[in-house]
Amino acid sequence: MPKKKSSTPFEESLAELEQLVSQLEQGDITLEESLKSFERGVYLTRTCRQALQEAEQKVQILLEKNGSQSLEPFTDE
Rank of each mutant, 00 (worst) to 15 (best):
T8D: 11
D76V: 13
P73E: 10
R40E: 10
Q26R: 14
L63R: 13
L44W: 02
R49G: 01
L52M: 12
I29L: 11
Q69E: 12
L24F: 02
S22F: 04
L52G: 02
T47Q: 15
N66C: 05
D28C: 04
S68V: 07
E72S: 09
L62E: 15
Y43H: 07
Y43R: 07
S13E: 14
Q57L: 14
L62F: 07
R49V: 14
E25W: 01
I29T: 03
K65G: 02
K5G: 11
S70L: 12
T30S: 15
E64I: 10
E64K: 15
K3G: 02
V21C: 02
T75L: 07
E39V: 00
E54Q: 11
E25N: 15
K5N: 12
A51H: 06
A51N: 03
L14A: 07
C48E: 02
Q26C: 06
S34R: 09
S70D: 09
C48L: 10
Q19M: 07
L71P: 00
L31V: 13
A51C: 06
Q50E: 10
I61C: 02
S68A: 09
K4R: 12
D76Y: 11
S6P: 01
T75N: 09
L31I: 12
S6N: 06
S37L: 09
S7H: 07
E32S: 08
T75S: 11
S6V: 15
V59R: 15
S70A: 11
L20H: 00
L17R: 06
Q60I: 08
K5T: 14
G27A: 08
T30G: 05
A55D: 03
E54G: 00
D76L: 14
L14K: 11
E16W: 02
L35F: 04
T8G: 03
F38E: 14
L71M: 13
R49S: 10
T30C: 02
E56G: 01
E11L: 13
S34A: 14
P2W: 06
K3L: 15
P9L: 13
L17P: 00
T45Q: 05
L31R: 10
S22V: 02
L52T: 06
N66M: 13
T75W: 03
S68P: 00
V59D: 05
F38P: 00
Q60L: 09
Q19N: 09
K36P: 00
T8Q: 14
L63Y: 06
L24C: 02
